[in-house]
Design a protein around this nucleic acid. Sequence first.
DNA 1: CCATTATATGTCATATCTGACATCGCCACA
DNA 2: TGTGGCGATGTCAGATATGACATATAATGG
Lengths: 119, 119
Amino acid sequence: MNQSKRTKLEAAGWKIGSVEEFLGLTDQEREYIELKLALRDLLKTSRTEADLTQQELAKRMKSSQSRVAKMESGDPTVSIDLLVKALFQTGVSSARLGAVIAESRPAYGESAAQNTDAS
Amino acid sequence: MNQSKRTKLEAAGWKIGSVEEFLGLTDQEREYIELKLALRDLLKTSRTEADLTQQELAKRMKSSQSRVAKMESGDPTVSIDLLVKALFQTGVSSARLGAVIAESRPAYGESAAQNTDAS
DNA sequence: CCATTATATGTCATATCTGACATCGCCACA
DNA sequence: TGTGGCGATGTCAGATATGACATATAATGG
């Protein structure tokens, strides 16, 4: 199993076993995972675009640097609510948010994944 | 204050006072409220389209009828996460979800609101 | 009038999320 | 070799969301 796949599962709070890679997950669960991942990626991008440090964004949101880090690392304890609030604080518009969500798709195989791990 | 405005604020868990209608809310807070409201409306629509009762949807989600009712009534204790999960269960696609979100906008005045109350 | 069905509302114990804090690794640059 | 900024990770007490339950209202059909 490659890194991007592993990350997807971990992002949703799933344990990495031997079998249940994407087996045992319903379409709806996959859609939910992809959505959260898309938001996480957008946040990384938008915070950088806004030229903010995690610390600065945290202050704006009245949150903490460590939680921002968790948001961006796909920590399963981070809610969509928090991600959305963070996104708005970085200046992302509803239009852009919607566009990104519309593009997010449940991944059935390797094809959908961007390689995160080098080489 | 008309009904639609009141609903917006209650949806976000805000108390209805005398002054702070939309004053005192930041742009980001307004965007967040509008987003949640858009999801709530979409859920009402999509559940009906899918010809499901609240009870049936609740069973699919392993939730309860009362919580589905709260989702659709804009109860502030309902998270975006739960709304999104419910939406996917009713068969809403990422594309449609994204489109609806893209259309949701922070309301600055009366203009944006659809009249909910009769007459 | 009485059932039945769908939806709404209030409460509560428990589950999950949250901010805060400590700490670590990494990288730049003196 | 520091030192300082940035980000990642683990923990935890307190805050918030959750499913479940009871009960209410409303509409429909006998």
